[in-house]
Amino acid sequence: MLFAHGFGCDQNMWRYIAPRFEDEFRVVLFDHVGAGNSDPSAYEPQRYSSLSGYAGDVVAICTELELRDVVFVGHSVSAMIGVLAAAAAPELFTKLVLVGPSPRYINDADYVGGFSADDINDLLESLESNYLGWSSAMAPVIMGRADRPELGEELTESFCRTDPSIARQFAQVTFLSDNREDLTAVATPTLILQCANDAIAPVSVGEFVRDRMPNASMVLLNATGHCPNLSAPEETAAAIEQFVRKLAPALR
């Protein structure tokens, strides 16, 4: 199982979920380039100017680690990154779990993504004012922990801290992308986990994704907000287990 975190955070997003699958699966966690403890020097603005750059990384991870029969679990923008990866290399993936997916955040004619283009500018401003406290001297301290990959308390210091210029471009790529057309091409069995009150990916968007993908079902969680993996790990993990487990519960 390959877990991918969304915009704003890092692999710690999965700390309450991923360990539950270690009995049956090889569990792989990673930080997108620019997030968490990734090497910021690997960030190339050109490569990461669209989600396909990130999808390329997902495929590269599978290839490098020789992963087969991959269950991809992607949160937020990584849901679409997973869809793009599965479109590019369908043979790698057996199942997709999309947590709070949205193929398009901006409203477009009849399509309600939930946001206007101005809202996204508002977000960029919000990012900017929240990074005033970011000092370039601190950056290496926060980011440079690649040598200590264990899940320790100190690692969460980097949680939700991204280099400002990278965060800005990632925000633009995330919220300005339009991947509605990519959904129909992915026939991999897919589970959509949708929160009841998600300000970022409303229920109607989850339903849109379900209806466009040939082989997708949706579970509506009681959890509110955009991060059920943190706010309701029990419910989230149970829904994923239902979908991915092969072993009967009694055998575990």
């Binding site: 969304g6 915009f7 704003g8 955070c9 710690n12 997003m13 937020s76 946001f115 206007s116 101005d118 809202d119 996204i120 500018n121 508002d122 977000l123 960029l124 401003e125 919000s126 990012l127 929240n130 969460t156 949680f159 939700c160 919220f175 009150n197 998600d198 300000a199 970022i200 509110t224 907000g225 955009h226 991060c227 943190l230 706010s231």
Partner: peptide, 24 residues
């Protein structure tokens, strides 16, 4: 909900940064 009182951009920031940080 508190997030509903925020500007749209702030709401995204709240959901993607603030709430995860608080819960972590």
């Amino acid at each position: 909900r508190f997030a509903q009182l925020l500007s749209a951009g702030g709401r995204i920031y709240y959901e993607t940064h603030y709430a995860p940080m608080l819960s972590m």
